[in-house]
């Protein structure tokens, strides 16, 4: 069982990276992955809500709807995050 940790710290051949650099890079990658996830789901949901029959262009009404939908999706995301967090707090307090 010496795969994961030792792979990181030995870095055979490619030169040793210090822990701080690794942590920074991982954080950036996580942030990018989360932004992509949000973008993808948001596009999906707002396309579904706002574009009925795809026409020759993204018309004014559709653009307005998508803009509003994006804001509401962010609101929803934050509401869900808060609700989940308070649920976790309550469950931790019960134990």
């Amino acid at each position: 069982m010496d795969g994961f940790g030792s792979d990181f710290s030995s870095g055979a051949g490619s030169g040793k990276m210090d822990t701080g650099t690794i942590m920074e890079q991982v954080k950036v990658q996580i942030a990018v992955a989360n932004a992509q996830e949000l973008l993808q789901r948001m596009t999906d949901k707002c396309f579904k809500k706002c574009i009925g029959k795809p026409g020759g262009s993204l018309d004014n009404a559709e653009q307005k709807c998508v803009a509003m939908c994006m804001d509401r999706y962010m609101d929803a995301w934050n509401t869900v995050s808060r609700a989940y967090n308070s649920r976790l707090q309550r469950e931790r307090a019960r134990i």
Binding site: E37, R41, W77
Partner: peptide, 27 residues
């Protein structure tokens, strides 16, 4: 063998990521 600081970091980040993933899903 593993850097304890790094191990701790990965544990914390993994937990944060599980949280975020579930928020995406539930949203």
């Amino acid at each position: 063998t593993a850097d304890p600081q790094l191990q701790q970091f990965i544990e914390v980040e993994s937990q944060k990521q599980r949280f975020q993933q579930l928020v995406h899903q539930m949203t």
